[in-house]
Write a protein that binds this DNA or RNA. Structure first.
Lengths: 210, 210
DNA sequence: GTCTATAACGAGATAGAC
DNA sequence: GTCTATCTCGTTATAGAC
């Protein structure tokens, strides 16, 4: 009888994280304050400190949650059982969804703030990128073995190229407020990995209207 | 008789800009303060404000000087009269030199801070990227016409891919403190534009070189 | 779990003497 | 051109009441 739903599905701490995440993704870790979150949520800064005693802990929680969500998304892609090209395309879609919210990848943004981050955040941040690269290496190796992807040399290098280029493309596209910039770059990156892509076609993306 | 050298070649304002530039490139525009520069230079904050009344003006001057230096470097490349592949390689070298100083590209860093920048800085920032892209488009068109570069579609798209990817590669490489990451990515980007680069290393075509 | 209140400090910026 | 001194505000963080 005393059993009840403890909190609404998005409880206070989650809403705080949601807002903090959005702020970091748009303004950077040094571009927001506890006051920003508190006022937007209609609580005091002290309440924020109750849930996240220091900004360093808040930041660490942000990276942890973001990595978890990202990892889940990768697992979901794997579950679909698609071939490598489709998996890469789905991978790009994760970035696209973030950019469409006018945001930068949380960890790409934190990479810019790297020098100013507390050590625990630095460690968690590199782990995010390593997780991404590991997953991509797996996709790339499978794809090449199956003849569905074509690239030379170490898959690790290609994985790093993809992560870096997608992060950079988000960064610059956001500056121009132009998601099309990102789209065309991502399409080229994927196209260059296609066995058919040898520069032979003049250009035939899934772009209908001009 | 009253004629004399007005200031040492690197005068006060220049040294302030040098330090500010370094700070922005490593910590971001919101990651440093006037106090950081003043203490390092052994002057007071008031002195800084004499030369750069507001942080917004300081930032604007930073972008202006950085763009000028960058533009000069591009002009110098043009003067060498090399072919397109060599010009692209020299372009990458500019980025490499910055990264070797453990720094991020000033404008790549500011792109992350974009949402928090004063409007004049935003405008100057986009101009930097546009200047880069314009120069690259020219190189790409020449190179393709001369049969020295191979790529499909609009050179503008390739230029955007290059700028974005190089910026992203710097960003992530700096996080890992690993310049080799950048080097291998840049090499791949350039290699993909080479007429000989068709994944020949791993493939079986009638390709001579290995 | 949230509040009021406040500490302790750093930020950007200005006034005015030298 | 550089200084001292100061202002005002924002920042992270804590103490203690409710």
């Amino acid at each position: 009888m005393s059993l009840r739903v403890q909190k609404s599905r998005t409880d206070t701490a989650d809403r705080m994280l949601d807002l903090a995440e959005s702020l970091v993704q748009t303004r950077g870790f040094n571009g927001f304050s506890y006051a920003d979150i508190a006022s937007e949520l209609g609580v005091t800064k002290a309440t924020l400190h109750y849930h996240f005693p220091t900004k360093a802990e808040l930041g660490l929680r942000l990276i942890g949650r973001y990595t978890d969500v990202f990892t889940s998304a990768l697992a979901e892609i794997d579950d679909r059982g698609d071939d490598a090209p489709h998996r890469l395309s789905a991978y790009v879609d994760i970035y696209t969804a973030v950019l469409h919210k006018q945001r930068m990848c949380l960890c790409g943004m934190l990479a810019a703030d790297y020098a100013t981050l507390p050590p625990p955040m630095k460690i968690a941040l590199t782990q995010f990128f390593e997780t991404n690269e590991t997953w991509l290496v797996d996709v790339l190796e499978q794809g090449r073995s199956a003849g569905k992807l074509r690239f030379s040399g170490d898959p690790v290098e290609v994985a790093r190229l993809l992560v870096s280029s997608l992060e950079g493309a988000m960064l610059v596209a956001r500056t121009f407020g132009d998601t099309e910039r990102f789209r065309s770059i991502a399409a080229r990156l994927l196209n260059d990995l296609s066995p058919l892509a040898s520069g032979q076609i003049e250009r035939k993306p899934d772009n209908p209207a001009k």
